[in-house]
Design a protein around this nucleic acid. Structure first.
Lengths: 104, 104
DNA sequence: ATGATATATAACCATTTGGTTTAGTAAAAC
DNA sequence: GTTTTACTAAACCAAATGGTTATATATCAT
């Protein structure tokens, strides 16, 4: 049994972020998703597997089609991680100033 | 010349996220950062290089030491990307419901 | 039944990743 | 000036990543 996929790793790939973007507009089948990319269907299939493994996408089998839908809740972890540092970048306390103050 | 590093890829690694967390508390030298991890100093050096290449960390040479400081502004891209989908997960329109509605 | 369609699975491959150890180099301490 | 110290760079390695093509499987259409 594989260790549960990491959502940070899942969104590291630009193709997978683009897939999320597509699914935000509407649920799509795997094939219609694949039409948007310049790569083979198995490649998209693999990306989709990674996305489902970390909970970012839910796939439901309907006949011979797989209907794919994004589960944006899984992005909360990412948003929260990044946002915890927002006060740092929105304040005056960013990296350069830290360093400059330090060397004063 | 290497293509500019991607911040999404940079934060995909848990060690690098931990480094960001450390630098949020205070600027540190490369060595003091390395003390927090169970890996060699060159390994941390490499992580730090990736972090600086995508702008997440700023390093300033001071004598023989490298003072490392996080530049949280570089996280804005990540926060914004994730947040654009917040309305989806905070509303009732999440994946499962989409699919269930569809198959009604 | 036969064939087309939608997808998964397998086998394969090149490249990247994340680590290692072993030098090097530059600054500080003695 | 010799030795630590802080780090970088190089050479190496196993494993993971992201793609391919070819094949299998299940469903739908005829």
């Amino acid at each position: 049994m594989k260790a549960r996929r990491d959502v940070f790793q899942a969104i590291a790939d630009p193709t997978r972020r683009a897939i999320i973007g597509l699914l935000a507009k509407q649920t799509q089948t795997l094939n219609t998703v694949a039409d948007n990319f310049n790569m083979s269907q198995p490649a998209i299939s693999k990306h989709m597997r990674i996305l489902t493994e970390c909970g970012l996408v839910v796939m439901i089998k309907q006949g011979r089609e797989r209907h794919c839908s994004a589960n944006f809740k899984a992005l909360e972890e990412v948003a929260q991680w990044a946002e915890q540092y927002r006060s740092f970048w929105s304040s005056r306390l960013d990296a350069l100033e830290n360093l400059l103050n330090e060397s004063d």
